[in-house]
Amino acid sequence: MSKKKLLTPLSSLLLLRRTLTSTPHFSIPHFQSRTNFSPNIEKLRPLFPLPGFDFPGKSFISSQFGNKPNSPHCWNCSAAAQTTPFLLCPSCRCIQPVDHSVDYFQIFGLERKYDSVEEHLEGKYKDWQKKLHPDLVHSKSEKEREYAAEQSARVIDAYRTLSKPLARAIYILKLEGVDIDEEETLSDLDLLSEIMEVREAVEEAPNSQALNLIQSLMQEKLKQWSNSFAEAFESRNFEEAVKAIWQMTYYESVNEEIVKRQ
């Protein structure tokens, strides 16, 4: 089935020149699966239910259905949550269990907009780490130490996701209930041959200057498509948004390849 697709001449050529990223975090979509294997690591997580893991399904169900029935209370001192997100109780400073209905944007107090991420994200991320990091709660109860580990891991994920344009695009689209459909790309032969050419140029680049040149080109393309994504998403044209994600994915993969060679 899907394996057959792999053997179309063009894609098999691409497969040969693999050398590509083996960074599995935000894996590059691959031709293999027509199956339901999303390239997105988060979707795989329910398979491996570890502390700190997200079940994105949950998060958009609750965001679609609006408010939670009860506003949360601190598990330790029962004070009612006065803030969203409620990661830390302001009255007893206890770390709260992970609430998956709070999305990554809410963690950082951001509007759910593609370009709402500003430069202070890093500061906000570090702010949370100073409150939630497991190193700071060695003397607390086992329960709270576990919450700290989970919250801290989730804040890292949130930061990593939102700070990268491509990851952020995939994530925000998923919050809208749109998952990336890999078959889409197979039709875009123009993009594929373009990428193949670029990749050849990367492989044959005589020096780091040439590499830097290709890289700045890729970054330009990424920026363009990131803008197109923002526009498409804003006008809720999800089909265009998905297309932009594919473009970004490929340019990003070339970019990573260059970084590896530099």
């Binding site: 083996s22 960074t23 599995p24 975090h25 894996s27 691959h30 293999q32 294997f37 690591i41 795989l44 491996f48 570890l50 700190g52 893991f53 580990a149 801290s152 891991a153 890292i156 990593r160």
Partner: peptide
Amino acid sequence: IIPRNTTIPAQREML
């Protein structure tokens, strides 16, 4: 699967 210099805690997966 988890490259060096990845912030801890970390989870990564490969196929």
